[in-house]
Design a protein around this nucleic acid. Sequence first.
DNA 1: CGGGACGATGCAAGCGCTTAGATTTTATTG
DNA 2: CAATAAAATCTAAGCGCTTGCATCGTCCCG
Lengths: 397, 397
Amino acid sequence: MPLNTSGAGEGRPAGGASAGNVVTLYDVASLAGVSTATVSRVVHGLDRVKDSTRARVLEVIEQLGYVPDSAAQSLSRRRKDVIGLVCIERTGPKEQYDIETMSLLFYDEVLRGVEAQIRHRNWSLLITYLEDHAPRDLSRLLALSGKVEGLLIGEGIVPSQMLARLAERLPVVVISGSPRERAADVVTADNRSGAAALASHLISEHGLRRFYYLDGPENAPDAAERRRAFNQAVRSHPDCQLVGSCQGQFSVASGDAAGQHLLATGDPLPDAVVCANDQMAIGLLKAFARADVRVPDQVAVVGFDDIFPGSLCDPPLTTIHQPMRLLGERACTRLLDRIARPDLRPKVELLSTDLVLRSSCGCPPGTMTRQPLQRQRGRRTTPVTLTMHALTAARIS
Amino acid sequence: MPLNTSGAGEGRPAGGASAGNVVTLYDVASLAGVSTATVSRVVHGLDRVKDSTRARVLEVIEQLGYVPDSAAQSLSRRRKDVIGLVCIERTGPKEQYDIETMSLLFYDEVLRGVEAQIRHRNWSLLITYLEDHAPRDLSRLLALSGKVEGLLIGEGIVPSQMLARLAERLPVVVISGSPRERAADVVTADNRSGAAALASHLISEHGLRRFYYLDGPENAPDAAERRRAFNQAVRSHPDCQLVGSCQGQFSVASGDAAGQHLLATGDPLPDAVVCANDQMAIGLLKAFARADVRVPDQVAVVGFDDIFPGSLCDPPLTTIHQPMRLLGERACTRLLDRIARPDLRPKVELLSTDLVLRSSCGCPPGTMTRQPLQRQRGRRTTPVTLTMHALTAARIS
DNA sequence: CGGGACGATGCAAGCGCTTAGATTTTATTG
DNA sequence: CAATAAAATCTAAGCGCTTGCATCGTCCCG
C-alpha cells in the first residue's frame, strides 16, 4: 500500500499542489476525508456516490488541480486507449520544395480523418514517421507496439513480413494497402476502377491512343496496381498502346526529370502521359512549360490522388480523387472495431474514387467535373465492365 | 509482490505468448531463471550483466516476443517521454476545397519538424486537433495534460487564460505565438521584419503607393502583428497609404470573397493587396482571374507564409517564407529543454523569415528570388531600420 | 424491534516495471 | 588460501490508479 495513504489526512505535502510535486488520488482522498475508491468513483461519474460526498470530492479536486495520471490508469485498467499512426516521410535529396511536396498532402488528410474519429471517442493518437530511405527497424515498431493498442500503417511503409510480425501482436490496419495483404485489415481506395475510368475517358472522350506511364517507386503497391489496371484498360482497346513508361519517386522533382527525359529522347510525344500521382504530374507540367510544350494540345497529362495544388496548376490537372480523409476515418473505425473484437477475421474495405475532369486531359478549360465511380464489387470482377459504365456518364458540365 | 513471481518457473501460462495474453517481464524472468531486475537490466542494456546471462535472457525475450509495456514503464519511471501537439482544424462551411486548404499546410510542416526531433530522441508524439468553431474545453486539455509531459500549442488556439492554467501544470511552448504571451515559452517567426520587408519591396522596387490589407480572423494574433508591422511601414513612408482593409478567414474561399467584394465596390483598385496568408491571396487571384483583372499589371497581390501552392498559381505568388518546419523543430527542442529544466524562465525565440519574390508583385516572371531577412534584435527595435537594410539587397536575380 | 436489503463507502490486491539496497558470486591479492 | 574488492544478481518496495469484495449504516417490513 502506498505510504501516503497512512497518516491522518496528509501523507505528502498535499496542501496545494506544491509546484513540481504532482497531485495524486491519495492527496485528494485524504484531504476530502474519503478513500481513493470513492474519489475514483467520483472522477468516473458512473458509480453511486452520495451527492454530498461527490460535491466535497469535486471541490477538493478543483482546489488541488488534480488530473489523473494516464500511465497509472492504463496499467490498472489494462488498456491504453491509444492507437498509433505510422506514416512515411520522403526525404531524399533536398531540392527546394521537395520535402514539402512529396508526401505532404496524402497523409495529412488521412491524419485528419483518423484524428477526428479518435477524438470523438476520447482516445489518443500517437504519430510516427518513418524515413523512406532508412532501413525498416522492426524493433522500433515493436517498441511502438508497446505503447498503443492498435496500429494504422500506410501502404508500402513496412515490408509484408514485418507487418505480419506486428499483426500477430496487436491489431493492424493498412491504409491504402494492396488488397492482397493477408495479415492485417486493409482499407483502400479503388485504384483499379479509377485507373480504368481515366483510361476510358482519355480514349473515348479525347480519342487518345498512345500512352506513356510515369510509374511510382518500386515499393509502392498502389502505384503498381494503378499501372496494371491502366495497362489492362489500354490493352483491351484495339488501337491503343502503351508507348513507354519510366519510374519516378512520387515527387515533383522526379516528375520534372521524367519530363525532361521524355523531351530529350527526341521521339514524338505520346498522346498522354499518365502519372501514378499528382505530384509527378505537376513536375511534368513544369518541365513541359519550360520547353514550351503545350498541354493538353500537344500532350495530355493526368495525375492520381487529387491533391490541392493540382487544381491550381496550369492547366489544372485531371486526376482521380482519392477519398483521403475518408480513408483515415474508415481505417480508424476498423481498427477500433478490431481492438474491441480481435477475433474478427481481417477484411478488405474498398472506397470508391471519383474521376475529376479539369483541363489537362483536353477537357475545356474553366470547368471542373467530379464524377463518382461505381465501386467495384469483390476483387475478381473485371474492372472494365463497371468502369465503362461509369465512364459513359462522365462528361464535362 | 505479483503472484506470478512465485511458483517454480512459471506463474502464468508463459509457455509461448498464448494469443491474447500479454507476455510480461515476469514470464521472461521465470523462463530464463533470473529475477525481473536482471531482465530489466538486459532490456536497457546499460547495466552490467554477465554475457552468458544476457544471451540467455535475450533468447527468451525473442522466443516469447516480449515487449515492455509502456504504461508500466511510465508509472515506474515517473516519466512518460511523450509530448502533445495541439493544432487547429478549421472547419466552417465546407466549400469544395476549403477544408483541405485552410490549415492543411502550416501545421503539417510544423508537425514534421516536431516529429523529427521527437523521433530522434526516442520520445513519442500525441497529436490533437481542436475545431476552430467549437468552444475551448479546458477539461479536455487538462485530460491531455495527464498523458504527456509537455505541450506544444499553436498560436491562438487556446485563450491566454487557459494557456496560463495549463502552463502552471506542465511545460508549454506556443508555436508561432505572439511574443507577448507571458505564461509559456514562445517560438515564432519574425513577422514584423517580414511584413516590413514586403512593404519596402512593394514601395521601393515597384513604386506602389496605395495598399489594401486583407486581414486574418479576429483571434489570430500573428495576422494582427503582420498588419501592424505593415501599417507602420506604410505610414512611415510619406506618399503611401492604406486605402482599405477587410477581414478574411485565412481560407481560399474567404480570399475569393474579398476579391469579389473589392471588385464590386466599383472603386479604383489599390496598387497592391497584401494578404495575411497565402491561402487568401490564392483566393484573391482566383477572383481577379475570373474578372479578367490582370495581376500584377492592374494590381499586385502578395501573401504570407510561402505554402507550396503559392509557387504554382498564376502568377506565382510573392510572399514571406515562414520556416514552418524549423518552427516545429525549435519549439520541440525548447519544450524538451523545459521538461528537463522546468526552472528556466519562459523565453521568446524569433526565427527569421525570407522574402520570396515571384511575379505577383510585379517582379519579372520566370524568376524566383529568396532573400533572407536579418532577424530583428530584441522586441523594441524599430523594424524599419533593419528591414530597409535587408531590402536594399533584395533584387530579382 | 429484529432481520434483511440495499446504498454508500472502505480495504487492499494487483496492473507490469524500475531500482535502491542487500546478498551472493567471482575475481584479486598478499 | 583467506581476506577483500568487485561484479553479478536478487529482493521487494513502490509508481498512481481501479475494482472485487467486505463492511457499515439505514430504512423498510413483518
